[in-house]
Computed example of a mutant assay.
Amino acid sequence: MKKFVALFLGLGLAFTACEKKGGSTSNAGQPAGRIVYVNTDTLLNNYEYYKDVVKEFENKSFALENELQRKAQSFQNEVALFQRRVQAGGLSEQQALTQQAALQKKEQDIMLYRENAAGNLQQEQAKKTDELLNNIHEYLKNYNKSDRYDMVIGYSKGGGVLYAKEDLDITQEVLKGLNEEYKSKVKKTSTPADSTAKK
């Protein structure tokens, strides 16, 4: 999940929109606007959709790790049994070679499965990150329908922005709106059966 967070923070929350604010203009003759920011640390810690996504991938990673441990343990048991049978002289040379080749193939299959499963999980995480950023971008686009701001930037401690005035912080407004939007989506996708089961 650290990669997931890093990817999100790396992409940031940059968003631009034209704005005419009180008719004032910059030196370049362009309409002067206001830049505000969203604290990405606060957003990540409190955005319910993000928390659900993190929990989902933690569960998937845990389940995959358990499955791989079971496969590895089963394989080790087979190897130990094979070694005991060889030492006891219970296998002919040909049988031993055949079984050894089968065990090597099984080990390769487990390693390949591990790589594929980890790769699929990373692809899923990348897709969810993209979805998350799209949600935030679309929300900010709607939030700025009245063209109040030229830019909304992502701020995090230790990031590129070293200081920003507190009255430029719109994190709580954005967070509230995003969580309300997410709750609404969850409610729409929940079936009556789900509601009954929760009660």
Rank of each mutant, 00 (worst) to 15 (best):
S61G: 13
Q69A: 09
I136V: 10
Q172H: 04
S74F: 13
T129R: 08
A96Q: 14
K21A: 07
Y163T: 09
E124A: 15
K145Q: 11
I35F: 02
E115C: 02
Y149N: 09
T98F: 12
E124L: 10
L140V: 03
E48F: 01
Q172A: 06
R84P: 00
M1C: 05
K20N: 06
M1P: 06
E124I: 02
K128H: 08
S26D: 05
L178G: 01
Y149S: 04
G90A: 15
N134D: 08
Y47R: 00
T98I: 15
G12Y: 04
S92C: 13
L9E: 11
K185Y: 03
T191N: 04
Q108W: 12
E138I: 00
F82L: 11
V5C: 04
P192E: 13
K21F: 10
G29P: 03
L44T: 02
E115M: 10
L7M: 07
Q95N: 10
A96Y: 04
Q100L: 06
Y155V: 05
F75Y: 11
E166R: 05
N45L: 12
V79E: 14
K60L: 06
S26M: 07
K199A: 02
G159F: 01
A28S: 15
K3E: 14
E93N: 15
Y149A: 10
Q95K: 13
V186K: 14
Q69E: 12
L168S: 13
S156I: 01
F62A: 14
L121C: 03
G10C: 07
A117F: 03
Q172T: 10
K188L: 06
D52L: 08
G33L: 06
K105M: 07
S195N: 12
A126I: 09
L103Y: 12
R85V: 02
G12Q: 00
D41K: 09
D194N: 08
A164T: 02
I153Y: 11
G177F: 03
L103H: 10
K2A: 07
N39R: 13
L140F: 01
T191S: 14
E115Q: 15
G119S: 14
N135S: 14
Q69P: 00
T191D: 02
G33R: 07
G12S: 03
M151V: 02
E173T: 08
T189M: 04
A164G: 12
Y37M: 01
V53N: 07
K198R: 13
A118I: 11
G89Q: 13
K60Y: 00
T42D: 07
L178A: 07
D169S: 02
S26C: 10
K55T: 10
E67H: 12
L9V: 06
E19S: 15
A193D: 13
D52A: 06
A17D: 12
N39G: 01
I153P: 02
K185D: 09
D194E: 09
F82H: 15
G29F: 09
N27V: 05
I110F: 04
S92Q: 11
N179D: 11
L64T: 09
A63F: 11
